[in-house]
Simulated scan of single mutants.
Amino acid sequence: MTADSGASDRLTAGDPLEQYDYGSHWVSEQISRGALGIQHPLLVSVLKFGLVWNLLAAAYLAVADTTFSPGYLVASGLGLLWVNIAPYLIWYYDERVLPSFFERLGEILPEEASVDELAEKYTTMFAEPQPLVAAFWTVGTVAIVFAGTDVLRAQGMVGTGSVFIWTTYAYALFIGLVLSHGFMGPVLTLRLIGEVAEADLQIDPLHPDNLGGLSTVGYCAIRTTLLYSTASLFLPLLFRFSAASASGIVIFAFATVYVCTILGTFLYPTLRVSLRAHTLRDTALERIRREYRQVEAEMQTPDRDELSELNRRLELQRLQTKYQNFNSVSLYPLQTSILARLAGSVFLPLLFIFVEFYVPKLI
């Protein structure tokens, strides 16, 4: 598709989100094409990307000659659940989170050319393959499977079931090579909002979000954080594998770092935009103060008449109201709904840590 044809398509598209969609990752494209006449993206994700692993898991349960540990089955099931939904989450970030952010960005960045430029840059960036990211996560997932080989053998991957060790390695490769692209979401969001923070933001003190229009930043950050936090579904399985070769404190430290990165994915971009907005507001308030003092000085001139006096008093009242509106608006993009979602994204990994480390002691 050429740039001109792409622009034409966006202008005539029925969905306003398509205006800022300059490209799609190949996983998103596969989800959008549907499967077997099904168009629902979540179901397509399961059919196209999860079905093979679901069938292999069923075969493993049927063939392996062992009594499975309930904890291992639950941990494996949670990990498999994430593998089924992860392609959908990539599609959702690519086709919903980013375009909707750019659609609302015009409220605080009114120059359409700037919004369009950012949209083209970052949607294209997400659509491109990321070999270094894939290589990093592929090495990591394969290494985790290697470290957990004893656990896999204890769960029936011996004898006729030993073939499933190799399918588990294939499973790790799939996660590293394909699903790891989802972790580009937080990186891209941090870079995107960081660049937005450097722009000449327009704070609207009368915006219905009561945040000067900055809620669009908060919603983009929290949606990215929620998507990123779903990877905690793999924590229980990681605990099982790591317990065979590392102490509990190492596992706890890893999980703590992960929770901190979840918080950082939300807090860093929102704090950066908030600081920038405060700077811009201080500049605006100083400008209003200068205008106010100038009108006051004009009222002291000896050649004033009643009409000009009235006009100046009205101007003073207008400037005072404008100053109060700017000064009272909250510039941290945090609403109750956003706060609840942030708590939920942090709660999930903390729940797994609690179950892994404390529930057995209580029992």
Rank of each mutant, 00 (worst) to 15 (best):
L109C: 11
T336Q: 05
E298Y: 06
F234Q: 05
E315R: 15
R104Y: 06
V145Q: 10
A244C: 01
A343P: 02
S215T: 03
K322F: 06
S308L: 11
G161V: 02
W26D: 12
Q320D: 15
P87E: 03
Q317N: 15
F254H: 04
L43R: 01
I85V: 15
K361I: 07
Y228E: 05
I353F: 00
P333H: 01
D303T: 07
L271V: 12
V346I: 14
D94C: 07
S328D: 14
R96A: 05
S328T: 12
S232A: 15
F357A: 05
A243T: 08
V355M: 09
M1I: 06
T336C: 01
F49T: 02
F146W: 14
L331I: 06
Y22G: 04
F234R: 02
I165T: 02
V83P: 01
I193Q: 07
L235D: 09
A231I: 05
L226S: 05
M184N: 13
T160D: 06
K322R: 15
S8N: 12
A62E: 00
D150A: 15
Y72H: 10
S180D: 08
H40V: 07
F102A: 09
P360I: 03
V133G: 02
L42Q: 09
R272P: 04
R96L: 11
F183M: 13
E107R: 14
L78V: 08
Y169R: 01
T224H: 05
Y122E: 06
A221F: 08
E95P: 02
I353L: 10
N325Q: 15
R289P: 01
S247W: 00
V295L: 06
V158Q: 08
T189C: 14
